[in-house]
């Protein structure tokens, strides 16, 4: 069984890291729409793919994954917005867990947004 001791070990390990993280700040924000429209369209696996993928890719220090309510474009859910310092917001639409993994690899790690998944491509 997962024990409280394990949790305390995590605490010890993280206390050293916290000061570091605070000074680095979060450069990139990944925001997933999680209202009824998003949830019904499959936002939960998309969110979890980002949460787990960002951590596995070692990007947790500069990428923060958060949730929001209805963005107002329900027909395009699941919607994911990526805010990056000094760059234009990128809005990905009709996402799924597979596309999320690609976005982590190519956009968050590689620095190149995947234009065919964006709202611009979807509304063409």
């Amino acid at each position: 069984m997962k024990s409280i001791e394990e949790l305390m070990a995590i605490k010890e390990k993280m206390q050293n890291k916290v000061s570091l993280r605070n000074s680095a700040g979060d450069d990139v924000r990944v925001v997933v729409g999680m209202a009824t429209c998003g949830i019904a369209a499959g936002a939960r696996p998309v969110l979890n793919a980002f949460v787990e993928g960002v951590s596995e890719a070692g990007l947790s220090d500069r990428v923060m994954v958060t949730q929001t309510g209805c963005i107002g474009i329900c027909q395009y859910e699941p919607v994911v917005e990526i805010y990056e310092k000094d760059k234009e917001k990128v809005t990905y639409v009709k996402m799924n867990a597979e596309k999320a993994k690609e976005v982590i690899e190519r956009h968050l790690k590689g620095g190149e947004p995947i234009s065919e998944y964006t709202i611009g491509a979807a509304t063409k």
């Binding site: 997962k2 995590i10 605490k11 993280m14 949460v51 947790s60």
Partner: peptide, 26 residues
């Protein structure tokens, strides 16, 4: 969980979430 972790370590940090995921799975 918060009383174990204390202030400054949010439940949303990846390490803690992994623990929670593992705990629930078991």
């Amino acid at each position: 969980l918060k009383s174990v972790l204390g202030d400054g370590i949010p439940l949303s940090s990846p390490e803690v979430l992994a623990w929670i995921r593992g705990y629930l799975a078991e």
